[in-house]
Design a protein around this nucleic acid. Structure first.
Length: 631
RNA sequence: GCCGCGAUAGCUCAAUUGGCAGAGCAACUGAUUUGUAAUCAGUAGGUUGCUGGUUCGAUUCCGGUUCGCGGCACCA
């Protein structure tokens, strides 16, 4: 039979399994291959290969990584079963950075103090080098095999045809496979954390114990991953926010952040940039009330849908709600006048401070809060303007995200089952969003059926410097709200026509975006955002304070946020303070600088000291700020 | 909201089996006037989240509660 491997043809004896094929086709990799891939299908190494093109999957490929993690979840389950014979297993899939297994431990409460014992048992099984064996069984056989496990039974009931089961020694699991050849292939793993997770992700079901873990092809790559986890912890915005004095939370207002003086500066800089760019793109800023009457929320539909998550109150016998979103306010602004088709698009931007009573367990630093500011806009347009307007929004988003060095991918969510309106308009709208993406040169994924009931949407998933993704921007098409409020414009023939509304945010929540920025920059903000931009250090307070004050005055005169540290400490100490505070520019002022009207600066994170004239430094920092450079 | 864990000085953390609550950093005072990541000495700082109980005695054991952490569910 003929096999093709890396473009070369090999005539081999058949039948032949993956191990044998590896031995012949690629002797150098035969010990590393963990699976065979043919015609896009992965199979176990001990399965016969077919005639045709063949590939070997190595543990350090993306597919290989998923496989070793999936196999490792079986390994962990086997170890758990040896230590806890009563354990019943749910699902145990590979995930992006490792794997987990959901386990019902009965009355036993597991803690992370039990991890070492489980890891030790896993290592024993690795040493035993037990092969993973695939077995195909009928549904009846499968039900008999897993008779003592209600979770597996529930899953088997849903399956049709033959069912594959993997066995390693005394342990068996329901699984599609494939798996690594034997447990000896899994050496570099670590149990990470423990969590509760509802069976099948449904809060009505029993909660199982989920163990998160990870497995890497080598000890070095595992170590590297664990270091990444540490680095993420060090960059956690909650920790940095405290260390750098940016924001705080209080027991008196859970989930409602307080911005401290330094954090408020960053916040204000973000907003002033936001105002600047929205002005450039033809938006008009509005402000609508924080609290509006029940009738308004009934008209918008929010009262019925979200009453439990809204803060409500009674004033003079009437019900009121604190706004959970800004749309109805924008609609009222629109209805304050009569609009011609020539007036559209009308772009109402609003930095709206909204309150949502999020579940207590959902709160997380600035990422998930109960009070936050949406950088909202509601754009009223004619149906024929959708595509062009979406393109304009995307251009604005590109410009904004680029300033922060954030890249993104786009997801288009389409018509759900419970949609309202005409199918034809849905199709047109989805196509308008898609073609706006294509025309502005962006790829997008489709998330079928995930749109809101009132219209399709584009979501922007940002990627930060640590490779994590965040949903920030979104563009949502809405025909529902204008209809509910009876909005109209006058067309060419003098008829009243319902406009379409676009909801969109760029930052999403300003608080959350700030949290992302803190983590993305590791707390070391670019100059334009930094709370203190320049720290001035006189070498000797008696001799140099006067010139240092002159430098300070010059910088403050051009609105640079500068300060002098004239405390009675050694230069090294004060320099360290500036570095720990992550201040972008540190200026040292001594005899040399004073004599010749110079400054010596050092940029955050750099060792190099540069001496320039004060004039040059002023030009330098003013360029850094106005062009929003990192430094 | 659910499962698990936690809460001690401004911050980061200690405190054998229940027996006078400690350290480093920060703060304050004094000396030192300093050329690129921590000068020295001293002082002060706490109803151990709150609340009930057990006990001669509770930071420690038990219950409740608030807030936080890791997840799950939720996210207009």
């Amino acid at each position: 039979m003929l096999l093709i491997y890396e473009g070369k043809e090999f005539e081999v004896a058949s039948p032949l399994n993956g191990f044998e094929a590896a031995k012949i086709l690629d002797p150098s990799k035969k010990n590393k291959a963990i699976a065979v891939k043919q015609n896009g299908r992965l199979t176990d190494m001990n399965v016969s290969v077919e005639e045709g093109e063949i590939e070997f999957v190595l543990p350090d490929s993306p597919e290989g990584f998923e496989m070793i993690n999936h196999s490792c979840s079986h390994l962990m389950a086997q170890a758990i079963l040896r230590l806890y014979p009563q354990a019943k297993f749910g699902f145990g899939p590979a995930i992006e950075e490792g794997f987990y297994y959901d386990v019902d431990f009965g009355d036993v409460v597991l803690t992370d103090k039990d991890f070492p014992a489980i890891e030790a048992e896993m290592k024993k099984i690795v040493k035993e080098n037990i092969p993973f064996r695939r077995k195909e069984v009928s549904k009846e056989e499968a039900l008999a095999l897993f008779a003592d496990n209600p979770y597996k039974i529930e899953r088997i009931q849903e399956l049709e045809g033959t069912i594959s089961v993997y066995e390693q020694g005394e342990f068996k699991d329901l699984c599609r496979g494939p798996h690594v050849p034997s447990t000896g292939y899994l050496k570099h793993f670590r149990l990470l954390s423990l969590a509760g997770a509802y069976w099948r992700g449904d809060s009505k079901n029993k909660m199982l114990t989920r163990i998160y873990a990870t497995c890497y092809p080598t000890e070095e790559s595992l170590k590297e991953h664990l270091e990444t986890l540490e680095r993420r912890k060090a960059n956690d915005h909650r920790r940095l926010g405290k260390e750098l004095g940016l924001f705080m939370l209080s027991d008196y207002a859970p989930g409602m952040p307080f911005f401290l003086p330094k954090g408020q500066i960053v916040y204000n800089e973000l907003l002033s940039y936001w105002r600047e760019i929205h002005q450039k793109y033809g938006y008009s800023e509005i402000t609508t009330p924080t609290m509006m009457s029940r009738e308004l929320w009934e008209t918008s539909g929010h009262w019925d849908h979200y009453k439990d998550n809204m803060y409500t109150t009674k004033v003079d016998e009437a019900d009121y709600a604190i706004k959970p979103m800004n749309c109805p306010g924008a609609i009222l602004v629109y209805q304050n006048g009569i609009h011609s088709y020539r007036d559209l698009p009308l772009r109402y931007a609003e930095l709206g401070h909204v309150h949502r009573h999020e579940a207590s367990g959902a709160l997380n630093g600035l990422f998930r809060v109960r009070a936050f500011t949406q950088d909202d806009a509601h754009i009223l347009i004619r149906r024929d303007q959708i595509e062009e307007e979406v393109k304009s929004i995307m251009k604005l988003m590109d410009e904004v995200y680029d300033v922060f060095g954030l890249t993104y991918r786009i997801v288009l969510s389409t018509r759900p089952d419970d949609y309202i309106g005409e199918i034809e308009f849905w199709n047109q709208s989805e196509e308008a969003l898609a073609s706006a993406c294509r025309d502005s040169g962006h790829d997008f994924q489709i998330n079928p059926g995930d749109g809101a009931f009132y219209g399709p949407k584009l979501d922007f998933k940002l990627r930060d410097s640590m490779g994590r993704t965040w949903q920030c921007g979104t563009i949502q098409l809405d025909v529902n709200l204008p209809h509910r409020f009876g909005c109209f414009y006058i067309d060419e023939s003098g008829n009243k026509v319902e406009p379409v509304m676009l909801h969109r945010v760029v930052f999403g929540s300003v608080e959350r975006f700030l949290g992302i920025l803190i983590e993305n920059y590791g707390g070391a903000f670019p100059t334009w955002l930094a709370p203190v931009q320049v720290e001035i250090l006189p070498v000797n307070n008696d001799a140099h304070l006067e010139y240092a004050s002159e430098v300070l005055a010059e910088l403050q005169g051009m609105k640079v946020r500068a300060e002098i540290d004239s405390s009675n400490e050694k230069l090294g100490y004060r320099l360290r303070q500036a570095v720990v505070s992550k201040i972008p520019y540190t200026l040292v002022i001594g005899d040399k600088e004073k004599e010749n009207h110079l400054v010596t600066y050092r940029i955050y994170g750099q060792k190099e000291q540069i001496t320039v004239s004060l004039e040059e430094f002023k030009a330098l920092i003013s360029e850094s700020i106005s062009k929003k450079l990192r430094y």
